[in-house]
Amino acid sequence: MNSIIVTAGARILVALLLVFSVFMLLRGHNLPGGGFIGGLLGATAFIVYAIACGTAEARKALRVSPEGLAMVGLGVALVAGLISALTGDPFFTGQWYWVGGDSYETAAFSINSVLVFDVGVYMVVFGGILSLILMLEEEL
């Protein structure tokens, strides 16, 4: 597709969709959203870009390979599960560390393994789905 409007519009759309996908990921624990939805949105962003500017451009813009991203994501999710081993809890027990307080009521924010896991899910879905579609687009 060699439409200038599409190409130019796609850049803005991709940026917006990516920001939105991260937003969906981060708010997922309390409101509709989460890693699956965020990952699908992120993949969609790059698919839009690939349709507008071609898969080579999309891959260049992504910088890392989607398959690699998915693999790393699986690793991140696994690490999130292994963190609980440090405190002697069963595998994949959520770990919470409060910053600026000692419970969710007083703390300013928290660092937790659950979000790390959701980021892993995000990366796997993002990378996995994107690589499937880019591959099909390139090979067929």
Binding site: F36, L40, V125, G128, I129, L132, I133, L136, L140
Partner: peptide
């Protein structure tokens, strides 16, 4: 999501 993965794989297989 998994259903989608399965579908994509089946599609590739078909092609």
């Amino acid at each position: 999501v998994i259903g989608f993965g399965l579908f994509a794989f089946a599609l590739v297989l078909a092609f």
